[in-house]
Design a protein around this nucleic acid. Structure first.
Lengths: 351, 351
DNA sequence: TTGAAAGCGCTAACAA
DNA sequence: TTGTTAGCGCTTTCAA
């Protein structure tokens, strides 16, 4: 194993003045160099950089923040991060933030946390951030916040009204509708929905898309079963649904639930997709490799995060100019083996 | 939808002196109240709190950090966070950190990033952190860092030597050995290993455990196949392994690869567990619901994070006292349906 | 193109 | 128990 060595700092950290003295310039000039300001001669810049290197100088971000009022950091409120969606969004946000020179502060609010999202936002505000991202929010009723920085809401139309609130990745309804249409197009007369927890806006959108697809074909809407995103809840739902003689197709609000659902159906003696078709949502990395490989909806998490951050940074850095046009990245239906036409031998009524 | 309202800040944020004036005390007293210091009369405390509430006062953490030299925040370097393990660790870290009053700054270093872990650490140091967590590091050769804060390395024996380096969750070898033993105990003569990427220390530990289990029984070690943690890589490996007539058991270094592997074996006409037993590692939330439900090793990510943070915070706050004894939380073998005795009909040689 | 001076809002050290 | 004073290391403003 390659061992790295860590030089533990001994004396106090060098400051800008130390570098300045070393380079024979003023402290302000050091500041100029490190902020990439204009009006620094090439010679001076080089000398400052050398001196800084030699002393192991690092800008002190606390001092910088205090003097400038800007922290160059963005706070993220995320829920249930171990879920594939939120985790993927977080990665995308970090990436995009770093690319534009912002650091990330993270607060993870699990459902049921005292204070909820509002508390998490408050916490971030105390830490000092130039902007806030609320990733995949849930409905916590009326929330009143005193926020003086721009807020980006990811994965739902902004649940907080506010002059400096932007959003991205709000397009879950349409793909949910398409997923349902896909099943309908295969010939299924009824499509059941295994919904996500309805406090999540993302879950509501999917439910709405499903309803819309059924409505446009004039189909009945069977009762909705609500899960909690977990495979375990999908499994429980599957046991319930398996007793329904009319069951031929289910649209699950995420892949994990779809996987649990399929397991339960399999245990009940139903084959997927021969007896029952199942479609998921998210396209997690394992979804293509479960049995049967899951037909699902792929979400462009990275693109959503990047797009959202673009808007947020604009709102931070050019507060008085208009927002650039939003272009939500496209969501994609991924056809695999868990969906098929309904079984022939089942009784079929006419329209 | 319940709409929250956001009161956008208008004037400049109130400062400690403003609160002080309002409450008729000195600024220092306000500071005392907000830091929970002793020697503040109940009456004064109440007045200060009321004034602060009224003005919407919030401590300015940049000023605090500048004056005190402490940021009350911890930086996390994490790799490929969408993986279940790292994502779970991150949640645990955030939780544990918040519980002890620390905020979190996150840098996500993907494999192949310029600068790698060292660059990420440097980045955190610039932001100002009181301690650093390196979660599930990979081997990037000799790394030389000038770090003057304590470092916690999660999931591997510290790859950075250093006076203020602690570690937790380093026990992957033993459970890997037990997983292999389980297969051996079932009667399998050979256990193959589908390894994780060997730059990850976590993957090396699992490989070592597998080797150790085979060695203690004097069994041959078949060639190791190396994946990249993904189900896709497990699938590719499965196609390779399926042609091996002797294949009856595989220990995969994580659940995702195990799932891909099973898919490939299934496609090759091999049944799991009747023909081939497969055991995974991690116990992701879907592992119990794939077909067949996966026998695996459950990692106590939350406990590991909590334990590690306990050590880190000790190193931060009491740098001169001895570390409390480490107690790595236990890892647990979860028996499900993907493992069974080897097929009877296969030719069996004697020991 | 460079520099000097004046804070940013807090905590530390000391006094009262 | 409370207050006073002096920085923390930068950026801002203004002057040279």
């Amino acid at each position: 194993m390659a061992q790295g060595e860590v030089r533990s700092g001994s004396a106090a950290a060098p400051r800008g003045v130390d570098v300045a003295r070393h380079a024979g310039v003023s402290q302000k000039t050091v500041s100029r160099v490190f902020n990439g300001e204009r009006y620094v001669s090439e010679d001076v810049r080089r000398r400052v950089l050398e001196a800084a290197e030699e002393l192991g100088y690092r800008l002190n971000s606390a001092a910088r923040a205090l003097a400038s009022g800007r922290t160059h950091s963005i706070g993220v409120v995320t829920l249930g991060t171990a879920l594939y969606g939120p985790a993927s969004l977080l990665i995308g946000i970090e990436r995009a933030a770093r690319d534009v020179g912002y650091a990330l502060r993270v607060v993870n609010t699990l459902e049921g946390d005292p204070g909820g999202i509002a508390g998490a936002v408050e916490h971030l505000l105390e830490q000092g951030v130039d902007g806030i991202v609320v990733s995949e929010p849930i409905d916590e009723g009326a929330v009143s916040l005193s926020v003086d920085v721009p807020v980006l809401v990811l994965g739902s139309p902004a649940p907080f009204a506010g002059p400096r609130t932007v959003s991205a990745g709000v397009g879950a309804e349409l793909p949910a509708r398409e997923a349902t249409r896909h099943l309908l197009g295969l010939g299924h007369r009824v499509v059941h929905h295994l919904a996500g927890p309805q406090r999540w806006f993302a879950a509501r959108d999917r439910l709405a898309g499903w309803r819309a697809a059924l409505a446009e074909r004039g189909r009945d809407q069977p009762p909705v079963i609500e899960g909690d995103w977990s495979a375990a809840s999908g499994y429980a739902a599957g046991h319930e649904l398996a007793s329904d003689r009319d069951l031929t197709a289910v649209f699950a609000a995420n892949d994990d639930m779809a996987i649990g659902l399929i397991r339960a159906l399999t245990e009940a003696g139903l084959r997927v997709p021969e007896d029952v078709s199942v479609i998921g949502f998210d396209d997690t990395p394992v979804s293509a490799y479960v049995t049967p490989p899951l037909t699902t909806v792929r979400q462009p998490f990275d693109a959503v995060a990047r797009e959202g951050l673009r808007l947020l940074v604009h709102a931070i850095e050019k507060p008085d100019t208009e927002l650039p046009p939003a272009n939500d990245p496209p969501v994609e239906l991924v056809l695999r083996a868990s969906t098929a036409p309904p079984p022939q031998h089942r009784p079929q009524t006419t329209d």
